[in-house]
Structures are given as C-alpha cells and as structure tokens.
Design a protein around this nucleic acid. Structure first.
Lengths: 268, 268
DNA sequence: CAATATTCTTGATGCAGATCAAGAAACGAT
DNA sequence: ATCGTTTCTTGATCTGCATCAAGAATATTG
C-alpha cells in the first residue's frame, strides 16, 4: 500500500494512481464529434471498422455505432469495469490484453483473458443487466467503447450486424461452457497440461512455449493456488515438460499429450 | 447391466431399451405436413406458438420455423443428443425436464437442468458447430425440434425473432458464467447452502423445500460426490438445515443465509 | 407382496490441493 | 546499480473432498 491514491483496492507495483473505474473524461478520445462538424473520421474509425464485429455492417449502421463511441488508452493494471455496475458500454479490446475476473467475499478468480478484437461484456449489453465480471488491463491497452443503447438500436435494423452479434455471443457462450467442463471434469494437473498444449497450438511452436501471463494469473485462471501451480509444473517433469522462468520446454509432446488427453469439445 | 438393449451406456433402473440417440422415425410427430395439405395446425402449433421464444415472431416467420419442426414425447432417461454430434435441430423443452451433461474420459458431470420452455442447444445451432453437451430426459418429456437451418434463415429476415434469439442466448451465457463463478469461488458446502436457498426462492416456500432431483444428480451438478453431498447435508445442521428424504427443512433461514452469503451476481 | 436393484448414508482411509512459512529470484523505483 | 517490493518456489502441515466399503433405505419388477 505504498502508492498515494485514495482508492487502492490491492497493493502491488502495478497499481497506479487510479485503481477504481478509470473514467477521467479528459483522457477520453471521442471518435466522432458532430458538434464540431469535423474530425469525424480520424484513424480510429478505420481501426474500429477493421474489427470483425463490424465487418458485415453497412455504413449507416456503422455511423450510428461510432457516433457515441470512445477510444481510450489505458495503462496496465487499470480496472475498467466492476461487476455489478450497469452495462452502459460494449467494450472491445483494440490492442493489448484485458483480464476478466470475479469476486465473492474475499476471494477472487480469473475468468478469462482477452486479446485483440475480443468483446466484453456483450451479454450484459444485450440484456441491459449489470456486468457479471470485472475487467482490468494487463498491458497497456487500447479499448473501444460503444454505448449499449446504440448496439441495441442497430441490432434491430441491421440483420448483418445482428448476425455478427449473435455469432460473437454464441462463441462466448461456448467458451464459457468449455471452461466449466474443464474445471469440473479435470484435475488441476490435467488442466495445466492442456493449457500448455493450447499455448503450443496458439503460438504455433513445436517444443517450446512462452507463458505470456504472470504465473499467479495462470494459477487463478486454472483454479489453483500459485504454490500448487509451481508444484504442478514440477510434477509435469514426469510427462515431458520442463520450466525455466517464463519458458516452458516440451521435451516429449507424445507423453504430454497422452497425459493431457486434450478434447476438441473442451480445448478446441 | 441387466437389461437387454444392445447399446447400454450405463446400468440402471432408468435405462430403457434405447440408450443411444433416440430417433425412431415412427415415433416422431411431424407438425406440419405440407404434402398432405391438411393437419397443418394441430394443437402442437399453438403449443409452440406459446413459447416465449416465438412470442414476437410474425406469422410468416413462424410458418417457416414449424414447417420442418417435430414434436416428440420421450420416456424418462432417454439420451436425446450426444456431445460432438452436429447441431441439426434446435431443441425446446415443451414439458418435462431435461439434463445437460458432459463427459471426459470416464468422468461425467451435470451441467444444468432444463424445465419448460428452455432451449438447448442454441449456440451450436447458431454457429453450426457440434454440441458441447449431451442431453437426456429426466422425466417423461415433450420436446420440440426445429431444424437449425430454418432458425438461421428466419433469424436473418425477422429482427424480432433475432432479438428473441439473442436475448435467449445472452441469458444462457450469463447462466454459464454464474455457474463457473459458483464453482471457482465457493466450497461445496457453500454451493449446497446456496442451492437450497435458490430452491426456496423458486418454490416460494418459507421453511421447507423439496429436492426435485435425485441427490446423485444434485451432487454432480454441484461438483461433488454423492457421499460428500450426504455429509454436506449433515454439516448444514449447524446452519439451520435438516433433511428428511426429499424434503429439506429450513429451521433457521437467517443462519443459513449468513453462511451461504448468496450473491445476485452468482445466484440471481 | 416379495424379490431385486439402486440409491442413500455412514465410517475408514487416502490423496489433492490449500494454507502457512521462509528463502530465492525477479522486478520497479530512485 | 541499489533498495524495496512482489512474485516465485520449496517445504511442512492441514483440510476438504474422493475413494473404498458395507449396511440402510428406497424404488422397481415380477
């Protein structure tokens, strides 16, 4: 608790001046400023247009969506939204990495990590209900925020956009189901083994993967303690895995796969 | 393994002749038979029309949806779909109760239980991907099946239907997130305590609730073994709960609530 | 109703994983 | 670079939950 902010939720080198919802109007960049009548198409517009969610959207719908939208850069480890708050904006990760997490009593768990072009939290926006998860940046990140009301408006009159939305939502749902299956059907060691294989697939490497996240985050995501994660890595030596800092060396993919038994319907 | 079926996945009094996908054409009731030119609006049509999912749908869209739809009655404990299969039909529970469950290696877990008007599995239908979960009836149940292709077709041209779909999907997603939070943030005893409080709310009772499901199903749903569920019930005596068969007597709601600490963002 | 499964319960035991504690390594700030 | 902080690791211990086993209660079948 060494920093001077008045609202510090957690001690840590990463917590900066702002620990609660980061919403200083002076740091917001409004994309489209009709009152000024110019600057209506800065480079941010192209950036948003490039997002798959808007790929099939026609120009009129797109204009409606970005009319009230914001783009903002956030420093690392900034809490963007807090669970329970009303869903005023749909958020889209433009660059960087965002963690979704959740609390109950004094406990906290990482739900997922979002990279470029990922949306959060669409379901709350659609249903006009409070967020179920909190979000914080892990790296320096750029986030697009589109007013929920505009999403709902365009959804009704643009069936292509509706299709994109429902497709994205279905993907999120399926990811959540897979996550539940992962936790309920596997031991923590099995989850770690499959996590490493997933990294290997994502990073398209053969015998070496990099843990891009802090180990304590990985532990929380996998539903275990940091201590146990250390021990789990040690146990995986028996299945052809060695760890050196952030690097994981896969010495025997066959053995690891035989142990992990990855499944398309959980890891696919 | 006492019954004579050739495809028995599990011994049990509830497993009948058919243990695999139950799809005997002779027992299907096609709703709308255009080739005959009559019987196009039996009582089943009204039944489907009454489902909230179709409430806002116009008549033309509705006609398209039911053109290829089926209604079928299933005996208890019949496996309706198996995870990994292609999502040919959207399923809707008309009456009865359906369990969604999932397997990995030799393990199985209950994901959720569906009552009247619930849909499954919408996301697979939308994305045209394989089911992530299997489904079986728990009671005698009537199930409506709408071809996935028709869902996708009508979705595109009827924005009211699209809205219903996306709303339903968002609800499913949020339920799944809540379930993940429940499992990752709570101990099994806390999950059971909150489960009892949920039943109390659903059944609108004060000091007594009925466990409508087999205890082994409840145990699997809550992520614990049947043995442990028994012991957990015993432990809850300390928090004002007593069990007699299928009946749970809540002797001290305040104590139970104080222990369970129900949260809107998990149990709401 | 009796016979037979199956589920539920209870006890004994074992293991996975949490907690507590302390040292090592890595990181950030000055 | 140095200091202070945080994370990571390793060991010791403890707890929650699973497993194994067997009897009691309950449901199903003939």
């Amino acid at each position: 608790m060494s920093c001077g902010s008045k609202v510090v939720v957690k001690a840590g080198r990463y917590i900066y001046l702002v620990a609660q919802r980061y919403f200083d109007a002076s740091r917001l960049i409004k994309i489209n400023r009709p009152s000024l009548g110019e600057d209506v198409a800065p480079k941010h517009l192209e950036e948003i247009r490039a997002n798959p969610l808007f790929a099939a959207t026609n120009d009129e719908s797109f204009a409606t969506l970005v009319r009230g939208a914001y783009v903002q850069n956030f420093p690392p480890h900034t809490e963007l939204i807090t669970e329970g708050e009303p869903a005023d904006f749909l958020h889209i990760v433009s660059t960087g990495c965002v963690e979704l997490f959740s609390n109950w009593r004094d406990r906290e768990t990482s739900m997922t990590f979002l990279g470029e072009n990922a949306t959060f939290i669409l379901a709350a926006t659609i249903k006009d209900r409070p967020y179920l998860m909190s979000a914080r940046t892990l790296n320096k990140s750029r986030v697009i925020m589109v007013p929920s009301q505009d999403i709902r408006t365009v959804f009704e009159r643009d069936s292509d956009f509706a299709k994109s939305i429902v497709f994205e939502l279905a993907s999120c749902y399926r990811a959540s189901v897979k996550s539940t299956k992962n936790i309920k059907l596997r031991t923590s060691l099995e989850r770690l083994a499959n996590y490493i294989l997933q990294l290997r697939r994502d990073q398209e490497t053969n015998d070496q993967v990099v843990l891009e996240l802090e180990k304590r985050k990985i532990a929380s995501f996998l539903g275990m303690t940091p201590e146990n994660l250390s021990r789990a890595f040690a146990s995986l030596k028996n299945h052809g895995v060695e760890v050196d800092g952030q690097t994981v060396i896969i010495k025997d993919v066959v053995a690891l796969t035989a142990f992990a038994k990855p499944a398309l319907l959980i890891d696919g």
